[in-house]
Simulated scan of single mutants.
Amino acid sequence: MNRGLQNANKGFTLLELMIALTLGLIVSAIAIQLTLTAQKGVSSQQAMSNLQNDALFGLEAVVRDIRLANLNASDVVINDSVLHGGIVLDAKNYTSKRTGAGLGDVELVDALSLGNIENTSNLSGVKSDQLVIQYKNMMEDQFDCEGAKIPVNTFVVQKYFIRKDTAKNEPNEPFSLACKAFTYTGDEPAKIDLSGNGEIIIPRVDYFGVMLGVAKDKCVDTETADALMSCFGYISINDYMALTTKPQIVMLKVGMLVRSTNSTGSNDLFNEDKLYEILNVNSKLKPNTKNDQYMRSIVTQTIALRNGFGIEKQE
Rank of each mutant, 00 (worst) to 15 (best):
E146L: 00
G58N: 10
E16M: 06
M241Q: 15
A178W: 02
E170K: 09
T183Y: 01
K127I: 01
L177G: 10
D80G: 11
L228E: 11
V281N: 06
A242G: 05
D226F: 14
A61L: 06
Q293D: 05
E118M: 05
T302K: 03
K284G: 15
K168W: 00
S230D: 11
V299H: 05
S28K: 01
N2L: 13
P151H: 00
L252C: 07
A69I: 07
P174W: 00
A31N: 13
D165T: 13
G85A: 15
L275G: 04
N197D: 15
D193A: 01
T264G: 01
S43L: 13
E140N: 11
L131I: 06
I26F: 14
V27Y: 05
N119I: 03
E16W: 04
R67P: 12
G24Q: 08
K180C: 09
T35I: 05
D65K: 00
N53A: 14
D54G: 13
Y184G: 14
G186F: 09
A167V: 05
L285P: 11
L23Q: 02
N137R: 09
S124E: 14
T244A: 07
D144Y: 00
A167F: 07
R306V: 04
N79I: 08
L194P: 05
I133A: 11
L177I: 04
S266M: 07
S49M: 10
V250P: 02
A181G: 02
E188T: 15
D273V: 03
E188A: 14
G86A: 08
G102E: 08
S176V: 07
L89K: 06
E60K: 00
R306I: 03
S266A: 09
L112C: 05
L305F: 07
E272Y: 01
L103T: 08
S113T: 11
I311T: 12
F270I: 03
D292P: 01
Y184C: 13
V250Q: 08
C219D: 11
T99Q: 05
Y240T: 07
N9W: 05
L269K: 12
N79E: 01
G147H: 03
F175D: 10
N122W: 03
Q6H: 10
P287T: 10
K164M: 04
V76S: 14
T261S: 15
I303N: 01
Q45G: 10
E188V: 13
V27E: 01
N267K: 00
S195N: 13
D239I: 03
Q52I: 06
I202G: 06
T183M: 06
Y94S: 07
L21P: 07
I201Y: 00
K218V: 15
T35G: 10
K286D: 14
I150H: 06
T166R: 04
G198V: 05
E188G: 09
P151F: 00
G4A: 07
Y240Q: 06
S81H: 07
L212F: 11
R306G: 03
R64P: 01
